[in-house]
Design a protein around this nucleic acid. Structure first.
Length: 216
DNA sequence: CAGTACCT
DNA sequence: GCGT
């Protein structure tokens, strides 16, 4: 048994307070996973997954797309939000109602009322891909929380402190789990360890993460 | 895999 | 320093 990945087989979704301002909602999205994945397929037909480059000139292993009024992008110029997809110069696809409703209800359940995200960053992880420790700090104000929905293969999320050299705790995230952090935790460093080689019943060798933010 | 140097 |  691995207690990083708790079961929710025979109960309602579990709320777990991991730290001040950090709430893990195990299985919170489990009834909506098919709808979410269908919407991801539609969004990424218009704005395909792509591996962005960091300002330092390295390609990120995780492939990304966005929906909503704004999208998070990285390139040689830096990290920022843009209203248009640089791949096609079109507006990002609209945020589906099921995304907005789920993100809002998860935020409320975690204690953050009136969350109105204008961005959903969609991250696609294959086995071996990862996200190094970073802060989400490209948003205009930090009063709104971050809502993160996990789909497909499990991953180990690293929750660090407010400084890069602080120790991190490992959080196992599985299909349908939702992690919310905000308030005193809003600027905590975080990352994702390289995915293990594995296969998910619905998604195959793939993890999809939806990150909701209020950027403007 | 955590710590660290890297140098845009 | 969302990279190696």
């Amino acid at each position: 048994m691995n207690d990083l990945f708790a079961d929710f087989d025979d109960g309602l979704p579990q709320r777990e307070d991991l730290a001040a301002g950090v709430v893990l909602l195990r299985g919170f999205a489990r009834e909506q996973t098919a709808s979410l994945l269908l919407a991801v397929a539609q969004i990424t037909q218009a704005s395909p997954f792509r591996q962005m480059s960091t300002p330092g000139g390295y390609r990120m292993s995780v492939a990304m797309s966005n929906c909503g009024a704004l999208g998070w992008i990285a390139d040689s110029q830096g990290y920022r939000y843009a209203a248009r997809d640089p791949l096609n110069n079109h507006a990002w696809p609209a945020m589906p109602e099921v995304f907005l409703a789920l993100a809002r209800s998860a935020a409320l359940e975690a204690g953050f009322a009136d969350f109105l995200p204008d961005v959903c960053l969609i991250n696609r992880y294959a086995p071996g891909t990862k996200l190094s420790m970073h802060q989400d700090k490209d948003e205009a104000d930090f009063s709104a929380p971050i809502v993160s929905i996990s789909l497909g293969l499990p991953a180990i999320f690293l929750l660090g402190g407010l400084q890069r050299n602080h120790p991190s705790q490992r959080i196992g995230l599985s299909h349908g789990d939702v992690l919310v952090w905000g308030g005193p935790a809003r600027l905590r460093y975080h990352g994702v360890l390289a995915l293990k080689q594995d296969s998910h019943a619905e998604l195959g060798a793939c993890r999809i993460n939806l990150t909701f933010r209020q950027a403007a």
